[in-house]
């Protein structure tokens, strides 16, 4: 197994936002954390990223305990909802950032960084945008840059915080497929946070449905549809009928 989350609990003041969450992720798997807003899915993702720390429970990756490891040492690539591109840097500089920040001993040579950045941009089909600034890009292009930047550090895990929510439906569908392809090609595990049922069911190998800081059900999409574990899950997935009938099978 790649990532193991054990009894993770988190409080905001006296408010329990994560309640003994358990989740085990296989290598190369694509997992979606699906739930309404306030269900704790983003908090869980941020704890996995190391941007917040749990008040209780354990986190391990490939057998290594990372519960208290700071974000910069985890080498988990993250795509933010806002993309959080560095506005004062070109696309190429954005993507190169993670490599340039490495300590000298492990930092690739300048030319090597350049060619890797170019390869990543080509892979994300944004090679022609290398010298543009983020303010000159469309939403979909910004998302691709954010993804390329996260992949540049050769992450051990890819974390995606609602990466499609700011895009219109058409762009979203196209990028979903592109993301899934890219993730398979690179062969790393990914965790996607979303409140969009259709998105989760189309893209993920397994889905964790969250409500009130707990995982209600964690299973393959077809199993969740066949046998919702709790009334909440059944209710939450109402309206997914269209997706099912369309036969967008997994």
């Amino acid at each position: 197994m790649a990532l193991n989350i054990q009894d993770v609990t988190k409080f905001y003041g006296s408010n329990k936002v994560l309640d003994q969450v358990n989740l085990t992720m296989q290598k190369g798997e694509f997992i979606a954390l699906l739930g309404p807003s306030g269900s704790g899915k983003t908090t869980l993702l941020r704890i996995i990223a190391g941007l917040q720390f749990a008040d209780g429970g354990l986190l391990s990756f490939d057998g290594e305990d990372i519960t208290g490891t700071e974000a910069r040492l985890r080498r988990f690539g993250m795509v933010f909802q806002s993309y959080a591109l560095f506005e004062h840097m070109t696309v190429a500089e954005n993507v190169a950032f993670g490599l340039k920040m490495r300590p000298r001993a492990t930092r690739p040579a300048r030319a090597e960084i350049g060619s890797r950045v170019q390869a990543l941009l080509e892979m994300g089909e944004i090679g022609q945008l290398a010298d543009r600034y983020p303010s000159q890009l469309s939403g979909g292009q910004r998302q691709r840059v954010a993804l390329a930047r996260a992949l540049a550090i050769e992450p051990r895990l890819l974390l995606l915080d609602e990466p499609f929510s700011a895009l219109d439906t058409k762009v979203r569908k196209g990028l979903r497929g592109a993301l899934r392809d890219l993730q398979k090609r690179v062969g790393i595990g990914a965790i996607l946070v979303t409140h969009d049922q259709e998105e989760a069911f189309e893209i993920a190998d397994r889905i964790a449905i969250m409500a009130d800081g707990r995982i209600e059900q964690f299973d393959k999409p077809e199993n969740i549809l066949k046998a919702p574990a709790t009334p909440f899950v059944a209710e939450f997935l109402e309206g997914l009928g269209a997706w099912q009938n369309a036969g967008a099978g997994i």
Partner: peptide, 8 residues
């Protein structure tokens, strides 16, 4: 935060 996850 993005910079932090990128190892800075």
């Amino acid at each position: 935060e993005a910079a932090r996850t990128l190892g800075a």
